[in-house]
Deep mutational scan, measured.
Amino acid sequence: MQFKLIINGKTLKGEITLEAVDAAEAEKKFKQYANDNGIDGEWTYDDATKTFTVTE
């Protein structure tokens, strides 16, 4: 399945997509990506659109 991450950071904004088996795997990958890029914020997930959002 394809999942999307919307980044609303203080210095980094944008979207990325990835393939994952389920939402838990996608969340783990997205949070690792955010951590690697210094993004720390409030996370939400919309199951209907398979979209994660992180807002700093």
Score class of each variant (00 low, 15 high):
Thr49Arg: 15
Leu5Asp: 00
Ile6Glu: 07
Thr51Tyr: 04
Asp47Leu: 08
Asn37Gln: 12
Thr53Glu: 13
Glu56Leu: 07
Thr51Ser: 11
Lys50Asp: 04
Ala24His: 11
Asn8Ile: 09
Asp22Leu: 05
Thr17Ala: 12
Lys13Asp: 05
Ala34Thr: 09
Ile16Lys: 10
Lys4Arg: 06
Tyr33Trp: 14
Lys29Gln: 10
Glu27Arg: 08
Ala34Pro: 00
Met1Cys: 04
Thr44Tyr: 14
Asp47Asn: 15
Val21Asn: 11
Thr17Phe: 14
Thr11Leu: 14
Lys50Ala: 11
Ile7His: 03
Glu42Ser: 04
Thr44Cys: 06
Ile16Ser: 06
Trp43Gly: 00
Ala34Met: 04
Glu42Lys: 09
Val54Ser: 01
Ile39Ser: 02
Ile7Ala: 02
Leu12Gln: 09
Asp40Gly: 14
Asn8Gln: 07
Asp22Thr: 14
Lys31Thr: 07
Lys50Gln: 12
Asp46Arg: 03
Gln32Met: 11
Lys10Arg: 08
Lys10Ala: 13
Asn37Val: 06
Ala48Arg: 03
Lys28Trp: 12
Asn8Val: 04
Thr53Met: 08
Lys10Gly: 09
Asp46His: 11
Asn8Lys: 10
Glu27Pro: 00
Asp22Pro: 01
Ala26Met: 02
Glu15Ala: 13
Tyr45Thr: 01
Phe30Pro: 00
Trp43Cys: 02
Thr17Pro: 04
Asn35Asp: 14
Lys28His: 06
Thr55Cys: 04
Asp46Glu: 12
Trp43Val: 02
Asp22Trp: 02
Lys4Tyr: 06
Gln32Ile: 14
Asp46Tyr: 10
Asp22Ile: 03
Gly9Val: 05
Ile39Thr: 03
Phe30Val: 09
Thr11Val: 14
Tyr45Leu: 02
Leu12Trp: 15
Ile6Trp: 08
Ile39Asp: 01
Ile16Arg: 05
Lys13Leu: 06
Gly9Tyr: 07
Asn8Tyr: 09
Thr53Asn: 04
Phe52Asn: 00
Ala48Gln: 10
Glu15Tyr: 10
Asp40Gln: 09
Leu18Phe: 13
Asn35Thr: 11
Glu25His: 12
Asp36Tyr: 14
Ile7Trp: 14
Gln2Asp: 06
Gly9Ala: 14
Gln32Pro: 01
Asp47Cys: 10
Trp43Met: 05
Lys10Leu: 04
Lys28Gln: 15
Tyr33Glu: 02
Phe30Thr: 02
Met1Val: 12
Asp46Gly: 02
Leu12Pro: 06
Glu42His: 14
Ala23Leu: 06
Ala23Gly: 09
Ala48Glu: 10
Val21Leu: 07
Ile39Arg: 01
Thr17Arg: 07
Lys4Ser: 08
Tyr45Pro: 00
Gln2Thr: 11
Val54Ala: 03
Trp43Thr: 01
Phe52Gln: 00
Asp40Pro: 10
Gly14Ala: 15
Gly9Thr: 15
Glu56Gln: 12
Glu27Leu: 15
Ala23Arg: 15
Lys50Thr: 07
Thr53Leu: 10
Gly9Asp: 03
Ala23Phe: 15
Leu18Gly: 05
Ala24Ser: 08
Ala48Pro: 15
Val54Trp: 02
Ile7Gly: 01
Lys29Leu: 14
Thr17Asn: 10
Lys4Met: 11
Thr44Leu: 13
Trp43Lys: 00
Gly14Pro: 04
Val54Gly: 00
Lys50Tyr: 10
Thr49Trp: 05
Asn35Ser: 06
Glu27Lys: 10
Met1His: 09
Lys13Phe: 08
Asn35His: 09
Lys4Val: 06
Thr53His: 11
Thr51Val: 15
Thr53Gln: 07
Asp46Phe: 07
Glu56Met: 13
Phe3Cys: 02
Thr49Tyr: 11
Asp22Ala: 04
Lys4Asn: 09
Tyr45Asp: 00
Thr49Cys: 04
Trp43Ala: 01
Glu25Ile: 14
Gln2Trp: 13
Ala48Ile: 12
Ala20Leu: 05
Gln32Asp: 11
Ala48His: 05
Ile7Met: 10
Ile16Gln: 11
Lys31Cys: 03
Thr51Asn: 03
Ala23Ser: 14
Lys13Ala: 14
Ala20Met: 04
Glu42Met: 06
Thr44Gln: 13
Leu12Asn: 08
Asp40Glu: 05
Gly41Trp: 08
Lys4Thr: 04
Ile16Tyr: 15
Asp40Phe: 12
Glu25Arg: 03
Ile16Thr: 14
Lys50Val: 05
Val54Cys: 03
Thr55Trp: 11
Ile6Arg: 12
Leu5Cys: 04
Ala26Trp: 00
Asp36Thr: 14
Thr51Gln: 07
Glu19Val: 10
Phe52Cys: 01
Lys13Gln: 09
Glu15Met: 13
Ala20Trp: 03
Asn37Ala: 12
Thr49Met: 09
Ala48Asp: 09
Ile7Thr: 04
Asp40Thr: 04
Glu15Trp: 12
Glu56His: 12
Gly41Ala: 02
Thr53Phe: 11
Glu25Leu: 05
Gly41Glu: 01
Glu56Tyr: 14
Asp40Tyr: 13
Ala24Cys: 13
Phe52Thr: 01
Trp43Tyr: 03
Phe30Trp: 02
Leu5Trp: 02
Asp47Trp: 06
Ala23Val: 13
Val54Tyr: 02
Asp40Met: 14
Gly41Asp: 01
Leu18Pro: 01
Lys28Pro: 03
Gly14Trp: 05
Phe30Lys: 00
Ala26Ile: 02
Lys31Gly: 04
Lys31Phe: 05
Val54Met: 05
Asp47Glu: 06
Gly38Val: 13
Leu5Ser: 01
Lys13Trp: 14
Val21His: 07
Lys50Ile: 04
Met1Asn: 15
Ala48Lys: 13
Thr49Asp: 15
Thr49Leu: 13
Lys10Asn: 13
Met1Tyr: 11
Gly9Leu: 14
Lys28Tyr: 15
Ile7Asp: 01
Asp36His: 14
Ala23Trp: 12
Ala48Cys: 05
Asp36Gln: 14
Ala23Gln: 15
Glu27Thr: 14
Leu18Gln: 08
Lys4Ala: 14
Phe52Gly: 00
Asp36Lys: 11
Thr17Leu: 14
Lys50Gly: 11
Gly14Lys: 08
Asp47Phe: 08
Gln2Leu: 04
Lys29Val: 08
Phe3Met: 02
Ala20Pro: 01
Asp22Glu: 13
